[in-house]
Design a protein around this nucleic acid. Sequence first.
DNA 1: CGCATCCTTGAGTTCGCTCAATTAACGTGG
DNA 2: CCACGTTAATTGAGCGAACTCAAGGATGCG
Lengths: 235, 235
Amino acid sequence: MHRNGIDAARLGTARCSSCAIRDLVLFGDLHDQDFDLIHIPIDELRLQHGATLYSAGDEGGSLYTIRSGLVKLVQFLPDGTQRIVRLLRQGAVAGLEVLVDKPYEHTAVVLQETETCRLPRAVVERLSKETPRLHARLMERWYQSLHQADEWLTELSTGSARRRLARLFLKLAADAPNEPVLLSGREDLGAMLGVGMETASRTIAEFKRAGLVAERAPNVFVCDLSALEAVALDG
Amino acid sequence: MHRNGIDAARLGTARCSSCAIRDLVLFGDLHDQDFDLIHIPIDELRLQHGATLYSAGDEGGSLYTIRSGLVKLVQFLPDGTQRIVRLLRQGAVAGLEVLVDKPYEHTAVVLQETETCRLPRAVVERLSKETPRLHARLMERWYQSLHQADEWLTELSTGSARRRLARLFLKLAADAPNEPVLLSGREDLGAMLGVGMETASRTIAEFKRAGLVAERAPNVFVCDLSALEAVALDG
DNA sequence: CGCATCCTTGAGTTCGCTCAATTAACGTGG
DNA sequence: CCACGTTAATTGAGCGAACTCAAGGATGCG
């Protein structure tokens, strides 16, 4: 399952009822008696940059709740090129498709050190049968994924490379406006925006010259959000 | 609700238990006693080209099951341009977002004469509480939407206009390889592929000259699928 | 120190956009 | 029945953006 054994550290068996980010995760609404239904251990994992949660086409055994970090969902085209279709952050769920008995649609790769809970399919299905509360949570995750997919299409796949890049920075900075934005290389950047990596590099360089962003360290950017906003709209 | 009263004909109150396409629709798995729970009428509507099911931002009152026809989901960008993010055909559901208490994400516009069942939110929620069978169906719809969204991004928003157009034809012809493909104008075509309408027109013209497609009547195309396949891959 | 990887930058070409003019199709009213 | 107006589609010309191919720096690790 885990191709990069080196990069996957099993932290232990999760105790959901005392989860620190309980209100964010899939099982947040469950009660103690609900957890009694779980007889399969839920592993908690820490994964390093580059580790693979699962690969497209694998028969899905588990869903993954992202507790912290950043994960990319990659889709490969017949011609070999790849496209990043979504980013997953704290609270998101990867691998929902296993709930409808499909193999994984994407390859899920860790971009920044990630802590995740692996939820065996059987656990979610069992709980889903018993407790209506989980349904609402599940639908919210489906919605979030779908919403992000649509946003990705309209915001990051439409308009000039300048505008796309500006919108990406704004999106990544959105929930922590004062924190620097962390990226993971020009190649990935291109794959997110649907442009070549040279174009990504050139556009970043241009942004730096214009003072829209500054690269504090490799792939660590501080952004002038209002200036980026202007670029996202006017070009 | 219906901006185009002219184009919306109320066919009557649906009787789900004798639905002709029951195995395709959302309520397909329900039993007679389930339907007893419904005390709100489900309207069946016939809508003409150009009619609007709902508009982005509206507070969602209902979901819509597409019984036949073709509907586009359109998203408007801040700068005024619009992008078609998905097409809905027989069996698909529009407006799932109302189930998580969100306003409609898109504007849903009829491209080809469409028959649809309007499912008031309260009905779906009520049934969803009572019968687990509906959950599976609902998740399948979420999955279908998400899957299509991802496909749309990788197949119709990546690569040259030639390749995108070829892939669109293949996608539309997929479930009826011998039927002609129906489109709805170059403007919409551009909005699906993320290119200008002039480019859409030019590319169609090029395909016609090359014998890849033939336009039997305005917006009615017969396709050479294997030739299109080659274009989709090699360019 | 040397190799590998990632990033940058250049030059040339192609592709798609914009603006604009022309043609085609269709429905209305004279 | 034809002239007209309206809307959609086509086509051209010029421009700008992004791609490709390729070379040259930077950085880090063994």
